[in-house]
Structure formats: structure tokens, C-alpha cells
Design a protein around this nucleic acid. Structure first.
Length: 270
DNA sequence: CTGGTCACCTGGAAGC
DNA sequence: TGCTTCCAGGTGACCA
């Protein structure tokens, strides 16, 4: 599930509950993730206080004073709060907080990771190489044009490259290009400034709307019974292969780009 | 450097 | 019912 809007929704969901809380115990049931859990993971976390929960792209960062815990949810990761310790299948790590609740990391596919690093976490190689936050003012058409100059990769592939812009994954790449009327196979470096301006606006609009939609169903997975409870966002093109376009009479098409499914309207997107 | 492919995992859905 | 195949929201290593 987690692209930027989903990660931001998780952040907003857990932040009020964990901010200022001390981690009194750590339960580790699985260490094999995208990057293996540090050998001293539990010891380094015990006794620390969570000062803040931030987000950078698709990464969550728990600020712990002179250390930080970077969390990536991969394809199937979930953070939830529960009065119970992590017992469910795929509930791999639990942080016991000083209000007797557990912050639980669940991830069936284990593509995610939990990385302990020295603060500030932005110095971590994974975060340092990230491009601009798409919802901040610094993400402009001019900035995008500079990073795409002379690139021959399709614009859809470029949008999913975290070095170009942070947090956009397979769904929102398709959604933003549809909103901007840009064909996903267009060479990134060939887009005019005007079209890039439209794309930047579309990215911000699509992401903001998704965050709003997620926020309304936040209670489903925060503070609940530990079940994921993905929010049902309504995609405009994603997953709508052979269904009618919401804007015209054409039918949505699916193609494959860099191994990932792309959805687009052959008439609206040129 | 660039761009493309595949591997890492589990589970759900569709096909036979 | 049960087996097989395909597919999934993300990286990151490797190769030409």
C-alpha cells in the first residue's frame, strides 16, 4: 500500500499517540527484512523517548534524541497501536510504550526495514539521496525540469525515481500523469516547461487529495485490533484497464514500464 | 553515468 | 476442492 500519502496517513495516525512516550521494552520476532535488523536493535531502543515522528518520502523517522529509527513499510508494511504484544502472523516487531501500548510493525512480505541511525536521520545514505518533497514549495517545475534535463527515460519511470522526487510510487505516478494529460511513455527530458508545470500541480493535487482520503479512515488501522484496514481510495486510472476513461469516451489501457504496470488514457494523455 | 532486468518475500485471485 | 500461475502499492544489486 504505502506511497507518500499512505505513509503520511500512518504518521498522522501514530504521532499523537507515541510523541513523548518512552520505549520501555522491545519485542523482536523476526529480524530478516530488506535490511536485517541490527543485532543491538532492542538494547539501543530501550529507555529512549520518542521526541517526534517525521516523514521523508516514503520513510518514517522516529526521533529518539541522538539516535533515530528509520522505518520503511516496503510493499506490505503496517504500523499499528495495540494493547496486545505482537502475536499475529507477520507482526514482527513491537515497541512497548510507557502507557502499556505497543507500536507494532507488521509486514508479510518483509520488503520493509527498520534502521537505527545516528541523528539527524537525513544524513543516512537512503534519505540523503532523495529528491525534493513533492508537497513542499521547493518542488517546482523549474526544479523538476533541471533534474529531468536530457533524460531519455519515460516520464513515468522518472517520477518513480526517488532521486527525482520523493515518495511517488506506481499508483500516484499513473494518477498524476493522467491528471496532467501527459502520456507515460513520453521521454522525460522532452517535456516542455509548460507541461512540467502542469505535472507539478497535478502531483501536488493528487497527493493532497489522497492524504485527505486516507485521513478520513485513519481510525481503521490506528489504535484498532492490529488489522491493516487499508483505506479504499478511488483511483482515477490506476487498475482501471479496459474500463471507460472518466473524462472521455476512450478506454483505459495498461502497459508495462520497467516491470511495473502503468495505466493511462490513450486519448487524454498525449 | 544510463537504463533495463531481476531478486527479495508472502498471499490473494484467477485459471484449469 | 486443489493445484498452478500470475500479480501486487518498493527498493537495490547487478549487468550491458
Amino acid at each position: 500500500m504505502p506511497e507518500l500519502p499512505e505513509v503520511e496517513t500512518v504518521r498522522r495516525g501514530i504521532a499523537p499517540a507515541v510523541r513523548g512516550r518512552c520505549i520501555t521494552d522491545v519485542i523482536v520476532r523476526e529480524r530478516r527484512f530488506r535490511h536485517p535488523l541490527a543485532a543491538d536493535f532492542a538494547e539501543r531502543l530501550r529507555g529512549r523517548t520518542i521526541a517526534a515522528v517525521r516523514r521523508r518520502g516514503k520513510y518514517l523517522v522516529l526521533e529518539l534524541g541522538d539516535e533515530a529509527l528509520i522505518i520503511h513499510l516496503g510493499m506490505s508494511g503496517i504500523l499499528s497501536l495495540s494493547p496486545q504484544p505482537p502475536l499475529a502472523k507477520h507482526a514482527h516487531v513491537g515497541l512497548l510504550l510507557d502507557d502499556s501500548r505497543y507500536l507494532i510493525y507488521t509486514d508479510p512480505r518483509r520488503f520493509g526495514c527498520l534502521l537505527l541511525t545516528a541523528s539527524p536521520a537525513v544524513n543516512h545514505p537512503r534519505l540523503r539521496s532523495l529528491g525534493p518533497e513533492p508537497l513542499l514549495a521547493a518542488f517546482t517545475a523549474k526544479r523538476l525540469q533541471q533534474s529531468l534535463a536530457a533524460k531519455s527515460v519515460p516520464i513515468k519511470t522518472a517520477l518513480m525515481d526517488g532521486r527525482v522526487v520523493a515518495g511517488i510510487g506506481n499508483i500516484y505516478a499513473s494518477e498524476a500523469l493522467f491528471a496532467a494529460g501527459i502520456h507515460p511513455q513520453t521521454a522525460a527530458g522532452r517535456l516542455s516547461g509548460k507541461r512540467l508545470a502542469r505535472l507539478v500541480t497535478a502531483i501536488k493535487t493528487v497527493l493532497r487529495r489522497a492524504i485527505r482520503a486516507g485521513g478520513s479512515s485513519m481510525r481503521d488501522f490506528v489504535d484498532g485490533d492490529g488489522k491493516p484496514g487499508y483505506f479504499q481510495t478511488q483511483w482515477t486510472v490506476y487498475g482501471r484497464n479496459e474500463l471507460p476513461c472518466v473524462c472521455c469516451t476512450a478506454f483505459i489501457r495498461r502497459c508495462r514500464q520497467s516491470g511495473r504496470a502503468t495505466y493511462y488514457c490513450p486519448k487524454c494523455q498525449t
